[in-house]
Simulated scan of single mutants.
Amino acid sequence: MRSIAGADIYGITGEEHSRGRDNITVVKAMIDAGITLIQYREKEKTMLERYRQCEILRRLTQDAGVTFIVNDHVDLALAVEADGLHVGQDDLPIPVVRKLAGPSMIIGLSTHSPAQAAAAVEAGADYIGVGPIFTTQTKKDVCDAVGLTYLDHVAQREDIPFVAIGGIKEHNIAEVRAHGAETIALVTEIVGAENISKRVKAIRKAMERN
């Protein structure tokens, strides 16, 4: 099973923030920039539109050896044979998702507190999202920022792979890295860049400053 281990950047799609480019174009640019872990997150399209995009993205990521995660929709993840599925606190419980998705699919869960992190480990999540670290406008239903204290807690006390997420940009990514995050998710900072390859290089350089 592919995992998030070894990935420095967790790229997440966001077509409404992508300067008029579609998710296919953006993911191609992410792959060309060397991102090895990509999540398809699309809230506004119909399921058929999502499926058609994910069919293409699955082929692209598979050919490139990139781990492909689908957000929220276990049926979509199964239909395109994605490597994994990422769900939130208000989605189906992890044991139910595991029953539907099978033993080989990577399952990630968004968490916002120490109690949720512990529950995710107990439920059998393969990795957790930790955040939002900073205030973010990318998601409409996002909770308040949890700050770096929760990130410290997970890095120091939880034995599970995790991804820091939420309001992370080139200017603050070194601080997030310094607090123990090895894998960091970015949305608008990447998909909204005029030159994605150039921006990814700058982000990686910034990550080395801690």
Rank of each mutant, 00 (worst) to 15 (best):
S3R: 08
S3E: 00
I4F: 14
I4C: 13
A5S: 11
A5W: 03
A5K: 08
I9Q: 09
Y10L: 03
I12K: 08
G14F: 13
E15L: 02
H17V: 07
H17A: 13
H17F: 14
S18T: 03
R21W: 09
D22R: 07
I24A: 09
V26Y: 07
V26W: 09
M30F: 15
I31S: 01
I31T: 00
I31W: 00
A33C: 05
G34L: 13
I35K: 02
Q39N: 04
R41I: 03
R41E: 07
E42C: 07
K45C: 09
T46Y: 00
M47Y: 14
R50N: 15
R50Y: 01
Y51V: 05
R52N: 13
Q53D: 15
Q53R: 00
C54E: 05
L57Y: 08
R58E: 08
R58G: 13
L60D: 10
T61M: 13
D63L: 04
A64L: 13
G65V: 09
I69Q: 02
I69P: 03
V70R: 01
N71E: 03
V74F: 05
D75S: 05
D75R: 02
L76W: 14
A79W: 01
A79M: 03
A79Y: 00
A79N: 01
E81D: 14
G84F: 00
G84L: 02
L85F: 02
H86F: 02
G88E: 11
G88A: 10
G88R: 06
G88W: 09
Q89P: 09
D90G: 00
D91Y: 05
D91A: 00
D91H: 04
P93R: 04
P95N: 10
V96M: 11
V97D: 00
A101N: 08
A101G: 06
G102E: 04
I106A: 11
I106R: 04
I107N: 06
L109C: 04
L109T: 04
S110Y: 03
S110E: 12
T111K: 08
H112S: 12
S113L: 06
Q116R: 12
A118Y: 06
A119Y: 08
A120K: 05
A123D: 14
A125N: 05
I128G: 01
G129V: 08
V130M: 09
G131H: 11
T135H: 13
T136Q: 08
T138I: 08
K140Q: 15
D141T: 15
V142H: 14
C143M: 11
V146C: 15
G147E: 11
L148V: 12
L151C: 06
L151D: 04
H153I: 01
V154C: 07
A155W: 10
Q156F: 05
Q156G: 03
R157V: 11
D159P: 02
D159Q: 13
P161H: 09
F162H: 02
V163F: 06
A164T: 01
I165P: 06
G166P: 03
E170C: 15
E170Q: 13
E170W: 03
H171G: 08
N172C: 11
R177K: 14
A178N: 14
E182T: 15
A185F: 05
L186T: 11
V187I: 15
V187N: 03
V187Q: 02
I190A: 09
I190H: 07
I190W: 01
V191S: 07
I196V: 15
K198L: 15
R199E: 15
V200M: 12
V200E: 13
K201C: 12
I203E: 07
I203S: 05
R204W: 11
M207Y: 04
